[in-house]
């Protein structure tokens, strides 16, 4: 969470005193507040701009809606035809921003560190899809939403970004990263805790 000269960022679930892992009935829910996040906007139709981004951070931005790309330690999530979120290791968001700002200086584009705007709930296990389906109108069948897929949608009325990071066939079952605005984190955590049953 955050770095540099600013005060250390607090998890929006700090008041739970670390009780932020729940395992029950084939579902595991844990908070992962330690991912860096960078919002990037620009013209996806401009091959020169895309090449500049690739050269700066060595990841190809996903072009297809609702998809993502991964080149460790970076992931790029499609948010809109001209908008992406780059997810990086905790503390490295400053370097990612600096690299991108250098690359986009000559273009009509924007780079913003949004690390502390959202926290991440990591939901996994065989029952994860059913749990999400309780509060989400998306078609969450594996043939409709699978590994690498991304959606900005509503979960229990909270606007979230949903990203499947591990395949269903994996031993731990599918893994979903739920990016939730920090002001909704306590509410959504309570809802998920209740929904797990």
């Amino acid at each position: 969470m955050g770095s540099g000269s600013m005060a250390d960022a607090r998890s929006p679930l700090a008041h739970l005193d670390g009780a932020t892992v729940i395992e029950r009935d084939g579902v595991r829910l844990a908070e992962n507040p330690d991912a860096g996040k960078v919002n990037l906007r620009g013209d996806a139709g401009d091959a020169v701009w895309l090449a500049a981004i690739q050269a700066a951070v060595e990841i190809d931005l996903p072009q297809a809606p609702n998809t993502s790309t991964e080149t460790p330690p970076l992931s790029a999530l499609w948010l809109a035809p001209d908008e992406w979120m780059l997810v990086c290791a905790d503390g490295s968001e400053g370097d990612v921003v600096a690299s991108l700002e250098g690359a986009v200086a000559e273009f009509h584009a924007s780079v913003v560190d949004v690390t502390d705007a959202r926290t991440v709930f990591r939901l996994s296990g065989a029952g994860a899809r059913n749990l999400l389906a309780k509060g989400c109108a998306l078609d969450l069948h594996p043939r409709a939403f699978g590994l690498g897929d991304v959606a900005q949608t509503m979960l229990a009325k909270a606007a979230v970004i949903l990203h499947q990071t591990t395949d269903d066939a994996d031993e731990a079952g599918p893994v979903f990263d739920i990016y939730v605005p920090r002001s909704f984190a306590d509410y959504l955590w309570s809802w998920l805790t209740d929904a797990i049953g």
Partner: peptide, 10 residues
């Protein structure tokens, strides 16, 4: 036109 079919509440 970009994201596909979604619930009206979005």
């Amino acid at each position: 036109p970009w994201c596909g079919e979604r619930d009206v509440h979005e």
